[in-house]
């Protein structure tokens, strides 16, 4: 095979790789690293990118090592992981429901997680603002919230499974979850309200290494699962009839894919809050460059997602100094107009 493709064979495993995909991904990885390194150096205390890179390996001076390794790296890693997870989740959902407008936040997963998180904070909060249960459990709560909503939406939309219905029901459930979240914030103490508010908007501020490691393990596992399923996701995108015709197990696959997408979004939301619109934007950008074959789409989307959230986080840190604006504000500020543009472009057709 000369020309457009590289073929990869190892025992029974064989894969054709599009050269363009390889080129695009190399450029993106490069960009990803550059953004990460620039982001390491910027903040209240500015470090030259080169020094920052040295500090990553513990070779800078003591102050630089402290700032880079203990404060900036954890949050940048978290931003990158959250962005990647959300992007893959969005790519899977868009392929699965065959609607380019689907994304974890529009289907209500994010709002479900937000409700569970605020519920957790309200439930285990004592009057003197201490927690009765370790805060380490918070991600579990928000993940369960995400899963609960995903299940509810799926169950309600199941009859005569229509993607449109799925999206509409998601919107409805999201509105309900939002109202209940606000209810908890209104009735709870002010401390809870402001904390919950930051979380809901989506921020990677104050990230810790142990959170990063947890999310990393989670991410790698479900990313592998989704890559494994990617080939069959291509069949799903051709329509249920075609997928069934070429022997794809529709039900089982769909359930697995929904679990993977929810788990990725839920994991990201659990640690970084509701960073909106990333799951929508990243797959679209990726599709423009590498087409809609999911084997290529998933990694490329992931890189885009990571870059978007890292840049948003950087903007949130730098633009309004000394204030910190949650990264989610920026992703929404770019994402919503982009979404409207997509809608506008796709008008007429279904």
């Amino acid at each position: 095979m000369a020309g457009k493709y590289i073929s990869l064979r190892y025992g029974r495993f064989s894969q054709l790789i599009d050269k363009k995909v390889v080129r695009v991904n190399i450029v993106l990885i490069f960009l990803f690293l550059i953004v990460a390194i620039i982001s390491l150096g910027l903040g209240d205390y500015v470090i030259h990118p080169f020094d920052a890179l040295k500090a990553v390996f513990g070779m800078g001076d003591a102050m630089q090592n402290l700032v880079v390794r203990n404060f900036r790296m954890p949050r940048i890693v978290l931003a990158a992981l959250a962005g990647m997870a959300l992007a893959i989740s969005g790519a899977i959902l868009q392929g699965l429901v065959r609607n380019p407008l689907a994304s974890p936040d529009i289907i209500g997963v994010t709002d479900g997680a937000a409700l569970a998180t605020v519920g957790f904070l309200a439930l285990f909060n004592t009057s003197d603002n201490a927690m009765t249960v370790s805060i380490e459990w918070l991600p579990l709560a928000s993940f369960l919230g995400a899963l609960g909503v995903a299940w509810l939406v799926h169950a309600l939309a199941k009859k005569g499974y229509s993607t449109v219905r799925l999206v509409l029901i998601g919107t409805g459930i999201a509105a309900l979850a939002k109202a209940l979240t606000q209810f908890l914030m209104v009735t709870g103490p002010i401390y809870l309200a402001s904390r919950a508010n930051i979380w809901i908007t989506g921020s990677v501020n104050g990230a810790k290494w142990n959170q990063d490691i947890l999310l990393l393990v989670w991410f790698v596992f479900f990313f592998t699962v989704s890559l494994w399923l990617a080939r069959r996701l291509n069949a799903h995108e051709l329509g249920e009839g075609v997928a069934a015709g070429i022997g794809v197990a529709l039900r089982g696959d769909r359930t697995l894919l929904i679990i993977a997408a929810t788990a990725l979004a839920g994991g990201a939301v659990a640690f970084s809050g509701g960073i909106g619109f990333v799951g929508l934007m990243a797959p679209h950008m990726a599709r423009r460059l590498v087409g809609s074959g999911h084997g290529a789409l998933l990694p490329t989307s992931a890189l885009f997602g990571g870059i978007i959230v890292m840049i948003s986080d950087l903007a949130g840190r730098m633009l309004f100094l000394p204030l910190e604006i949650p990264a989610g504000v920026f992703t929404s500020a770019i994402g919503a107009p982009y979404f409207i543009y997509l809608l506008y472009k796709s008008r007429g057709g279904k």
Partner: peptide, 20 residues
């Protein structure tokens, strides 16, 4: 969907202002 995304857009900006 357009409406839902407008709502998400504005409420996210609102929350941003409120966190500050």
């Amino acid at each position: 969907l357009a409406g839902a995304s407008m709502a998400a857009f504005f409420s996210s900006l609102t929350q941003g202002v409120l966190t500050a």
